[in-house]
């Protein structure tokens, strides 16, 4: 049996195989098992349905934020179309589920694939170009997709949107609650695992090389155009997948939800959580969902005193404020605080 290593006082890698492990010590592996048990056994059995729904939303946002972080944090390409790609996922799931009669487990991958295809089309012209053109084209993409969702009334139902009835989710009857929670978090855990491993492959290394220095990456023989497209496609896939789950979560979707504001919300998540960090995307989505809940509570308090108009823009104000604060003061986000806390405990009492 392999000897467990919890607190090695140095790096004792004896074989190349040891270097390839995702976790440096067994401590990390242990924590993953503990958190998985917490996530899948303890939380579903100890919280009410409302809290579980909140957790599901958090998981959905974390998935989309993870996708955006692959594009923005790892590949260094800013996207403001993430909200609309999320919306494409949601609409595909809703249309296929409620009109086409597709089962739950078929609509979600289809929605993700469609979002990835739209992402490829969207980024195709700009991926050839250098740094910020991709960002500019996503503004156009976001607004054009919003327009299509709003005006293609035959397909999307226009401004009223689409409602999804609970019975349409297939044999497993994934309605709101425990089952849905489990589906969301199994998907999220898989996606985190895929992303963490993807970043250690040829593709992930190429993404990071493109972020750090495009010219040097090109000089090393990385086909930048193809990798940028790939990165955008993966990120759109994540967004579409999350969006499809969101459609089942929200039960009713309308184009107003998937505006540029949502893109900026995702951006706020990854900036707050940490650009280029996989736990960062999760932390960011937890942070933003909690912030939303807190502001919701505040809004209810203010509703009683009558100052309602002040509450509408305050969410945007906080998002903007946190983006500015984190990008100027702590560009690596919460994840650095997390790392530092971990290292403090690891080196205790020194």
């Amino acid at each position: 049996m392999r000897k467990f290593q919890f607190h090695p006082c140095g790096s004792f890698k004896e074989t190349y195989q040891d270097e390839l492990f995702l976790f440096k010590t067994d401590f990390g592996r242990l924590w993953v098992w503990i958190s998985l048990i917490l996530l899948f056994v303890v939380i579903p059995s100890s919280f009410g349905i409302q809290t579980l729904n909140l957790f599901s939303l958090m998981g959905i946002y974390a998935m989309a934020a993870l996708g955006l972080n692959i594009l923005t944090g790892f590949t260094g390409q800013l996207s403001l179309a993430h909200g609309s790609l999320f919306g494409i996922g949601a609409y595909t799931a809703a249309i296929l589920g409620s009109r086409g009669g597709f089962p739950f487990f078929a609509t979600i991958p289809l929605a993700a694939i469609l979002a990835a295809a739209v992402g490829i089309i969207l980024s195709f012209p700009a991926a050839r170009l250098r740094n910020l053109y991709l960002c500019i084209i996503t503004i156009g993409g976001q607004l054009i997709i919003e327009y299509v969702l709003l005006h293609w009334k035959g397909l999307t139902g226009g401004a009223e949107g689409i409602a999804i009835t609970a019975g349409e989710s297939g044999p497993l009857s994934v309605s709101q609650g425990t089952t849905f929670y489990l589906v969301v978090f199994i998907a999220l855990a898989t996606m985190i695992w895929v992303a963490a491993n993807l970043m250690r492959t040829r593709f992930g290394r190429a993404f990071v090389a493109i972020r750090d220095n495009e010219t040097a990456a090109e000089g090393m023989g990385i086909p930048i155009f193809r990798y940028k497209l790939l990165s955008f496609a993966i990120s759109s896939f994540y967004a579409g997948f999350a969006g499809a789950l969101f459609a089942y979560h929200a039960r009713e979707i309308s184009p107003g939800l998937f505006s540029m504001g949502m893109s900026m919300e995702f951006l706020a998540m990854i900036v707050v959580g940490g650009l280029g960090s996989i736990p960062g995307a999760v932390f960011g989505s937890i942070f933003i969902v909690f912030l939303n809940e807190l502001l919701g509570v505040l809004a209810r308090v203010f509703l009683e005193t009558g100052a309602v108009t002040a509450m509408i823009p305050i969410r945007e104000f906080f998002y903007g404020g946190f983006i500015v604060l984190f990008i100027t003061v702590k560009p690596k986000g919460i994840s650095t605080i997390w790392e530092r806390t971990k290292s403090v405990f690891r080196h205790w009492p020194f």
Partner: peptide, 28 residues
């Protein structure tokens, strides 16, 4: 000034944050 030396993408993110702040102020 504080992000002058970092990558252009950080500048864009900064101004997105500023845009959100401006927008909220004017909605208010």
């Amino acid at each position: 000034r504080s992000i002058m030396e970092s990558k252009p993408i950080h500048g864009a993110i900064l101004t997105i944050g500023l845009a959100l702040i401006f927008k909220s102020i004017f909605t208010f």
